[in-house]
Each structure stands twice: as C-alpha cells, then as structure tokens.
C-alpha cells in the first residue's frame, strides 16, 4: 500500500481516482484486523465499536479465544462474546487500548453501480484492498430471503469477516462469501441489529 500519495495539479481524473482509492483503502485497512484461529489465519474482522468490539463472520471464529493482528503491527488476544451461525456473524472483545475504530455507514442508502471497497486478508495477505461496484442488493437464490450486498469484487478465502466500505470509506457491510463470481456482504444494518441483540442478552444475563 502506498504510504504517500501525491496529488499533482492537472494530472487528470485517472490519477485522482488512483490516489483517492489508495487514500480510502489505507484508512479502511487501519481498522481491519486479521483473525488467527488456531495456528493459521482464519479471516478478517472490523473494529466496529469502542471499547474493543470486533465484528467478523461466525464461520471465521470457532474457539473462545483468538489472536488478532493489527496493520500497525500490534498483536493481542480477543474473546468470543457471541456467535450467530444462522446469520454468520460473531463479535469479539479485546482489552487492547487505543484501537482505531472503523467509521460505520448506512447500508440502506446504497445504490447499484456505487463504488465499494473491500479490505482484508485474502490468502493471509494483510492490508489487501479490492474495489468494485455494487452489483445488486437483495436476496440470493439458494440463500433464502435475507438481503445481501452483491459486489463485483475479487474476494478470496481470508477476506471473510472483513469490511465492505462505500466511496467515503464508511463500512456498510461484512464480506462473507463468494458466489457466482460476485462477493457477498452482510449489510451493516444487519450487523447493528445483531449487536443490539447481543447487548440486550448481556444485560439480561
């Protein structure tokens, strides 16, 4: 990832797009973690909320305690707080201070054709960024009634649990699977609902 992006006057729309994508991608990567479950990189996650709440897919986390790697080099442990296999969501909690929190956006305003950016660790490659557009928002054939954000992104194993962001760099989905040549993400609205349920259960307990 380019650490320094220079914007030269009059260099044209393509250079601007290039610089913009690098800038937004870099910002997004800062709050994107790699989750190590057992001895191998299992997937990605998003530092969703303070203090230390990390959202990922349920299929990424199978043990009560996992290791988390931040792009700035920090490594720490996180505990599995709740797992919802039906919705393929999970939330972890880490005690690490000063964590960069992702900016969360609204998934309900997404439009077909809008640019989206995914960050994560495909094949264990940290700090990876991919861009495409929203292909469609809606149910997907064999996957039932729930709404998926479908994007024409190049996702790979290891991207699961990582963020899907809009052109502003605000996270509007969690990358979950690849189907029919497209990347599917759980909308941020579903993640917020999941977190509300988890909080309510914690209070009740």
């Amino acid at each position: 990832m380019a650490a320094n992006v220079a914007w030269r006057e009059g260099s044209g729309a393509s250079a601007l797009f290039d610089a913009a994508l690098a800038t937004v991608g870099q910002k997004l990567s800062q709050s994107t973690v790699q989750i190590i479950d057992g001895r191998r990189g299992a997937g990605s996650g998003v530092i969703w909320r303070a203090p230390g709440w990390i959202v990922t897919n349920a299929h990424v986390v199978r043990t009560p305690r996992v290791k988390v790697h931040l792009p700035d080099g920090r490594k720490f442990d996180a505990e599995l707080v709740a797992r919802d296999p039906d919705n393929d969501l999970a939330v972890l909690r880490a005690d690490e201070p000063d964590l960069p929190i992702a900016e969360i956006g609204s998934s309900t305003e997404l439009r077909v054709g809008e640019l989206v950016i995914a960050a994560g660790c495909p094949y264990g490659l940290r700090g990876s960024v991919s861009a495409g557009v929203v292909h469609a928002i809606g149910p997907v054939g064999a996957l039932g009634d729930r709404l998926w954000i479908q994007a024409d992104l190049e996702l790979a194993p290891g991207n699961s649990g990582g963020p899907l962001a809009n052109a502003r760099g605000c996270v509007i989905g969690i990358n979950t699977m690849i189907a029919g040549g497209l990347g599917l993400a759980i909308p941020s609205r579903d993640v917020e609902q999941f977190l509300r349920r988890v909080m309510l259960q914690k209070r009740a307990a």
Binding site: W7, A20, V24, E114, L115, A167
Partner: peptide
C-alpha cells in the same frame, strides 16, 4: 479532495 473525487465517481 481525493476522497471527494471518489465519492463523485461513485
């Protein structure tokens, strides 16, 4: 500016 450019393209 660069962030605005991405939003504009989007």
């Amino acid at each position: 500016s660069t962030a605005a450019a991405l939003v504009a393209l989007s």
